[in-house]
Amino acid sequence: MDILFFGITKDIVGAAQIQLLEEKGKPTTVASLKSFLCQKYPEMAKLSSLAVAVNSAYAQEDTPINNNDEVAIIPPVSGG
């Protein structure tokens, strides 16, 4: 599963994209992905907000994520 990062999360991870390999404990919902990332990258837990997009639409905490989904991490937006 590929995960895309933007803005400050790209700086925190040090990459625009990472691949989560098939393994036990791989996140299966938006909520579990967020806690997985915040544990792996403690700086991510310090952000004002952290949203997740699944297939380029805002997802809910209980939205499932599958291997073929395009998953993106959306830190606080600041356009305009």
Partner: peptide
């Protein structure tokens, strides 16, 4: 248009 864009559109500014 501008108020909603600022709140929801995934664009980031440094």
């Amino acid at each position: 248009l501008i108020d909603t864009l600022k709140a929801t559109v995934p664009i980031w500014k440094k």
